[in-house]
Simulated scan of single mutants.
Amino acid sequence: MNTRFSLKTLSALALAGTIGFAQAGAIDALKKFNSDADGLSGSFSQTVKNKKKTQTASGSFKIQRPGLFRWEYTTPYKQVIVGDGKTIWLYDVDLKQVTKSNQNQTIGDSPAAILSNKTALDASYSLKEDGSAGGVDYVLATPKKNNAGYKYIRIGFKGDVLNSMQLKDSFGNETAISFNNINTKPGLARSTFTFTPPKGVDVLSR
């Protein structure tokens, strides 16, 4: 398993940007937030498991609609991922490498598309209530297309606050994400979502 950040994880996190205000009757609240929300910020920790190893990481994220996001991994390695509406920039600090890719082509019908397209949630996923455990209520999002990359995304809410996500991709990798310090009115500046490659780094295009 790749021990660096993957764009699939970015897609998973970006879905979180559309669901930070769900509560009892989670599907209706999720759809309302998807329609109304214009920004989100917070911190996260994640664990990715497959048959061979378990990887943990943590960091922070900022989202501004339409189509802007910034993800920063701080442990165990430093990476910055910026979506400026046209290009996704992935900066690996340790490797001194920047990878740039077309944003629309990269996110496709993934959960990240929900961030920049308010109709993508209903267009790409089937939703159903998925029970409660430990005071957390869950919604199950199942992709309508077989080539979506994920078998399911399970979204958890504690009260009216986004609590967690559980994902399983088409390769059998399982990702668990916990969220903290969620702010649904972060008042983010447009400059938050600009990126200029630092001097001396390699810049690759996909």
Rank of each mutant, 00 (worst) to 15 (best):
T9N: 12
T9C: 01
L10V: 13
A12I: 15
A14N: 12
A14Y: 03
A16W: 11
T18I: 11
I19E: 10
F21C: 14
A22W: 07
A22E: 08
Q23Y: 10
Q23L: 02
G25D: 13
G25S: 09
A29M: 03
A29Q: 08
N34Y: 03
D38T: 09
G39A: 10
S41D: 06
K52Y: 06
K52A: 04
T56S: 10
S58A: 12
G59I: 04
S60A: 11
K62T: 09
P66D: 12
W71M: 15
E72L: 03
T74C: 10
T75H: 01
Y77E: 08
K78E: 14
D84Q: 07
G85E: 04
K86D: 13
K86C: 02
K86L: 09
L90A: 14
L95A: 14
K96C: 07
Q97N: 11
V98M: 04
K100Y: 03
K100Q: 15
N102T: 11
T106W: 10
I107N: 00
G108Q: 08
G108I: 02
S110G: 04
N117I: 07
K118V: 08
D122P: 01
D122Y: 04
A123H: 12
S124L: 07
L127G: 01
K128T: 07
K128C: 02
E129G: 06
D137N: 14
L140W: 05
L140M: 13
P143H: 08
K145L: 11
K145G: 10
N146G: 11
N146M: 07
N146I: 01
A148Q: 07
A148H: 03
G149I: 05
Y150I: 05
Y150T: 03
Y150M: 13
Y152I: 00
I153L: 14
R154T: 06
I155V: 12
G156K: 00
V161N: 14
L162D: 01
L162H: 03
M165F: 12
L167C: 14
S170D: 15
E174C: 00
T175P: 08
I177L: 14
F179N: 01
N180R: 09
T184H: 06
K185F: 09
L188A: 04
S191V: 11
S191G: 09
F193G: 05
T194R: 10
F195I: 05
F195R: 07
P198F: 06
D202T: 12
D202N: 11
R206Q: 15
R206H: 12
